[in-house]
Amino acid sequence: MQVCEIFGSLQGEGRSQGRPTTFVRLAGCNLRCRWCDTPGAQDPEDGEEVSVDVVLDQVWRMRRRHVCITGGEPLLQVEEVAEMCRRLHRMDYSVEIETNGTVDFRPVQPFASVCMDVKCPSSGEKSDLGLLSHINSRDSVKFVVGDARDLSYAEEVITRCPVKGEIFVSPVYGTDERGIAAWVLNSGLPVRFQIQLHKHLEMR
């Protein structure tokens, strides 16, 4: 598989925010979000070809029991990712996958939780909203919002496409966090406000 980097940090967002985590960042993405914070992982050629066995050995050496597979869009390499998740699951790791919601994530759901990042208008991209019906109670959905149009879009999607997992609303870094928090507080929607912890702590 094409791997950009493997590193340890605190999980900065989602259901496991604050948890010590080993991150496996894969190379290659099928979207080009305007506010992408990992442009170095967009091109598959930015990664190094590494076997699943080598990745698992590096994960084991990190000595953390929680693993996040991210990108880029990791599910563009779904066969290798599914194999890695199966093996981590057998070794009693907890695994989560961050995905942009354009690739079917059902092959990995038996072995990992999914965080689907629903792309809002400010990103310049779109997710497949049909995938929301496959989100289960272990999974989550994230809306990264930058302005009022994004908030309106998030409200429309949440109202029209109920999901079983937890829903997060997260401001694009550098935008009006207080205003977005107030919107969440007053919206009456079943959502949770969350800032990107790693940005505020200036961690990876």
Rank of each mutant, 00 (worst) to 15 (best):
V108H: 02
S133V: 09
S133P: 07
P171A: 11
N186G: 10
V157A: 13
G124W: 12
R86P: 00
D117H: 11
C161L: 14
I195P: 00
S133I: 06
L151F: 01
R178W: 02
V157C: 10
I195T: 13
F168V: 04
V145F: 05
S137V: 04
I97F: 11
L131W: 03
R160C: 15
L132C: 02
V95G: 06
F168G: 04
S137I: 08
Y93E: 10
C85D: 02
D150P: 09
R87Q: 13
A112M: 00
R178Y: 02
S187Q: 06
N136C: 12
K119W: 00
R106E: 14
E166T: 14
F111Y: 15
D176F: 02
C85N: 05
K164T: 11
L151I: 07
G174C: 08
Q196W: 07
V144A: 00
A154S: 14
P110K: 04
D92F: 05
P121F: 04
T175R: 11
P162K: 07
E98K: 04
V157E: 13
D139E: 15
P121I: 09
V103W: 05
V141Y: 06
H134M: 14
F193M: 03
D92I: 00
E156D: 10
A181P: 01
F193Q: 04
K126Q: 15
T102S: 13
R149C: 10
T99L: 06
L88E: 06
I97K: 05
S140M: 08
D176T: 00
G165W: 01
L189H: 01
L189K: 07
Q196F: 05
T99G: 12
S170H: 08
I135E: 10
E125N: 08
D176G: 01
K126M: 14
C85G: 10
V108Y: 05
G188D: 10
D128C: 08
V103S: 04
P107Q: 01
T102E: 03
V114D: 09
S140G: 00
C115D: 14
A154D: 09
P190C: 03
D92H: 10
Y153C: 14
R86D: 09
Q196R: 13
G174Q: 10
